[in-house]
Design a protein around this nucleic acid. Structure first.
Lengths: 224, 224
DNA sequence: CCATACCCAATTGTATGCAATCTGTGAGAC
DNA sequence: GTCTCACAGATTGCATACAATTGGGTATGG
């Protein structure tokens, strides 16, 4: 019954964590659904112990809700959560991007390469949105890492996962997609120039444009 | 051997978590020290299972470092960590305070009461610094809760624990302490006035003053 | 017919036993 | 003398058995 023949590499707890997380983000587990330790353990093919560990990790990340002596259920998000998250991101990411420009720690070649690969994926006839999403996540993570503040990376990471449930890029109009990809290149340029205010501004535009694209699709609510 | 006769309330995992956390923040467990599951379990009087759960929780919060198949050791922090944390706080807390002023959600009576009780604790002959710390934490938490962004509360909470290791308030000069207490009252006034920019400014001053007080004591490093 | 108390099934929480992995030590070869 | 390899001890990771708690269903009394 181990229908997850993906990567047997890694320990049981890691497999459980990755499997459940992927199922939640892919929509295979819908919001509000109860995750019984026994069921999940049987489905993955491990015992309850590593499953419990994985569920607690996911609870710490806010992907599931843990109610003592009751169990764990998949968090169900709404438009309010999207606003909370993008409100935070539009505060933290521009700031971190400005710090990265000032620090000069950014690996500009790597960032440029990621931006380029996103262009290529977007040009395919059915664009591979999952691939773009992954490249995009790595791009943003690397920018924040270049800020020199490791905790900033962790804080933003702990918050960016949720919107993935909504298939972020699939709601982009062709124009919004082109603009988003262009932003990445402009961010690299601003970082190369060491211009903190430029970098901060572009990143702010980038995040708020993404926010607007998602808000339009998912019954809008006012920005913060 | 259960030298922890504290609160039998709650389940074993919760007791383990609270006990270990308190020991770390009180300095009873010094940085770099290995926390063997067996030893900790025996010391608290529970089995390894709830201890493992507590240690994973603490690892998620960044209080301990977990190395696979090796174990868990108490994180040892330095001046760089203090800068990272206060750099983040001086970005997030003023912003959240401004949101709180605009939202009007703040419980002004409760906040005023907390500020007043901090004054009283500070007036005792040996001021109860632990009590002040706790009141201060609740004050800041309530301000952020009034921002309306629940994730903001979580993010800041996940970061504020570390400086407690340094006995934050014990390094305040009498003048710095008076100023800090006055800031709290001014924040309440700014929130009452609904003046977001005022509230944001006071909170920024408040956090950065705290940063400076701590930096002076713990071998200074340049602000971000 | 409704309220209440009790009992039972399901599920989580905890303890313990066993397997896997890592570190340090010491013998042996070069 | 030093480097290598193998083994032993210790510790974590996983599995399983048991205890505790919750929620619902049912019977009972008003």
């Amino acid at each position: 019954m181990t229908q997850d023949a993906g990567s047997d590499t890694g320990k049981a707890a890691e497999i459980a964590y990755a499997t459940i997380r992927r199922q939640i983000l892919s929509g295979e587990r819908s919001g509000g659904e109860w995750l019984r330790e026994g069921d999940v353990a049987a489905a993955i093919g491990v015992s309850r112990t590593p499953v419990r560990e994985a569920l607690r990790r996911l609870a710490a990340e806010g992907l599931v809700r843990h109610e003592p002596n009751r169990g764990v259920q998949v968090e169900d998000w709404g438009a309010g959560d999207l606003d909370e998250i993008f409100s935070l991101r539009s505060q933290l990411e521009p700031w971190g991007c400005g710090l990265a420009a000032a620090s000069g720690l950014a690996d500009l070649d790597a960032l440029g390469g990621l931006a380029h690969r996103m262009d290529e994926e977007a040009r395919r006839d059915p664009p591979d949105l999952d691939a773009i999403t992954e490249l995009n996540n790595e791009f943003h993570r690397r920018v924040l890492e270049a800020s020199g503040n490791g905790r900033l990376v962790g804080l933003v990471s702990s918050v960016v996962a949720v919107p993935l449930v909504w298939r972020t890029f699939s709601h982009y109009s062709p124009e919004a997609m082109r603009r988003s990809l262009a932003h990445h290149h402009e961010i690299v340029q601003a970082l190369a120039a060491g211009d903190a205010e430029w970098a901060e501004s572009v990143m702010r535009s980038h995040v708020r444009a993404a926010w607007a694209s998602l808000r339009d699709e998912h019954r809008g609510s006012p920005p913060a």
